[in-house]
Design a protein around this nucleic acid. Structure first.
Length: 233
DNA sequence: GTCCGGTCCA
DNA sequence: TGGACCGGAC
């Protein structure tokens, strides 16, 4: 399916000239997400701070665990200003049980930086978000697309696996090059105006159906669009 | 006991 | 480019 991937890549952001196969992939996945997407405490929130908190928690912690901690953390620190004003020990305590405490320190430092130097408003552009501590390419893309509607991808391991399979991008060779290639393809694929839903749909599919081991191809909503070939007629 | 994971740092 | 960071799942 090298041809398909090449076609995706060469079309850049021009939705009108995206190959038909790409368009049906997007349509099928978005339709599935609308109906079967996971209902999670941070879904539907448009407060950028809340989205940031959820994404940082999700960086190395499984969804199920985060669902318990996220509402509690937000109740304790409802706004970016509240978090910025909190003492480090208290933030650390609120993070207890999630592990990877550097994330909490970075989130706290990011909140301080936004309040002290950026006027209190979280930046909307991925490049600006990435200048904050603890925010890499994935988290910047997730916050920008979900909270601000930016037309940018967000590839975590789930979304990376899904795109790799659907587009037929083989493993092997340089991991970094493969990753860079997937990000480029992902940029071309983002449905303009629906990037937040799209990114979350990719991750949900990867978490529930297009799982790492033994993917459930027979029930996959995008099997007809997939380079793996399962379920195609 | 082994694997998994986004960001940062060596 | 590869390990550290932590806790959970298996």
């Amino acid at each position: 399916m090298r041809i398909l991937a090449g076609a995706y890549a060469s079309q850049k952001q021009n939705a009108c000239r995206l190959p038909p196969r790409a368009r049906s992939f997007r349509r099928r996945l978005l339709a599935w997400y609308a109906r079967h997407g996971r209902r999670l405490p941070w879904r539907g929130l448009n407060d950028p701070y809340a989205v940031l908190v959820s994404e940082v928690m999700l960086q190395q912690t499984q969804v199920r665990r985060v669902t318990g901690f996220f509402p509690r953390f937000l109740a304790r620190y409802p706004t970016l200003e509240d978090l910025a004003a909190a003492p480090p020990d208290a933030v650390r305590e609120a993070w207890d049980g999630l592990g990877y405490y550097a994330r909490a320190r970075n989130l706290h430092a990011a909140a301080r930086e936004v309040v002290d130097r950026l006027g209190g408003a979280l930046p909307a552009r991925p490049a600006d978000l990435r200048r904050l501590p603890g925010i890499g390419r994935y988290t910047a893309g997730a916050v920008a697309s979900i909270a601000f509607g930016a037309n940018v991808p967000a590839l975590d391991t789930n979304a990376t696996r899904v795109l790799g399979r659907v587009l037929g991008i083989r493993r092997g060779g340089g991991a970094a090059r493969r990753q860079a290639r997937l990000w480029r393809l992902a940029e071309a694929l983002v449905p303009r105006g629906r990037a937040g839903d799209w990114n979350q749909a990719l991750m949900d599919l990867g978490a529930t159906i297009c799982v790492a081991r033994a993917p459930r191809c027979p029930v996959c909503p995008v099997r007809q669009s997939c380079a793996l070939g399962f379920g195609r007629s």
